[in-house]
């Protein structure tokens, strides 16, 4: 799919991101949260409250999201806040949609082969 290829070209780490969060509950929770609430601008501590967990439980997963570019850190006053990258979201969704289609196609052809 052209959009997915384009997205992959802009963000070569997208596949890595996809693979990582698919097998980690906390990363999945954070990704889904920001996908549904792209306007959230929070500190790590504030985010933990909104997610009903502790900063320590989120720290590593957040660091991974920041390193891959899905979340950005920004200094506001004397605090560091997390901001969702809306452009990255569009790219990621295009990529994920294509990845899901690809997996479904693979599954379907596997079933057909078995039959």
């Amino acid at each position: 799919m052209p959009e997915a290829d384009e997205a992959r070209g802009r963000h070569p780490d997208l596949k890595k991101l996809f693979e990582v969060w698919m097998d980690n509950e906390t990363k999945l929770m954070i990704t889904v949260f920001f996908r549904n609430n792209p306007g959230v601008i929070e500190t790590l501590e504030g985010l933990a409250v909104r997610l009903g967990t502790t900063p320590d439980a989120l720290r590593d997963a957040i660091a991974d999201h920041v390193s891959i570019g899905l979340l950005k850190e920004r200094k506001v006053g004397d605090k560091t806040v997390l901001v969702y990258d809306r452009d990255m979201r569009m790219d990621m969704e295009a990529f994920i949609a294509e990845e899901i289609k690809r997996r479904m196609r693979d599954q379907q052809s596997e079933q057909e082969d078995q039959e």
Partner: peptide
């Protein structure tokens, strides 16, 4: 439309900044 969900201190903290959130 742009929806922001944050805390009041974030809005006030940037009072002196050139461009805040």
């Amino acid at each position: 439309v742009r929806l922001l969900c944050t805390t009041p201190d974030m809005v006030l903290a940037e009072s002196g900044a050139k461009a805040g959130i």
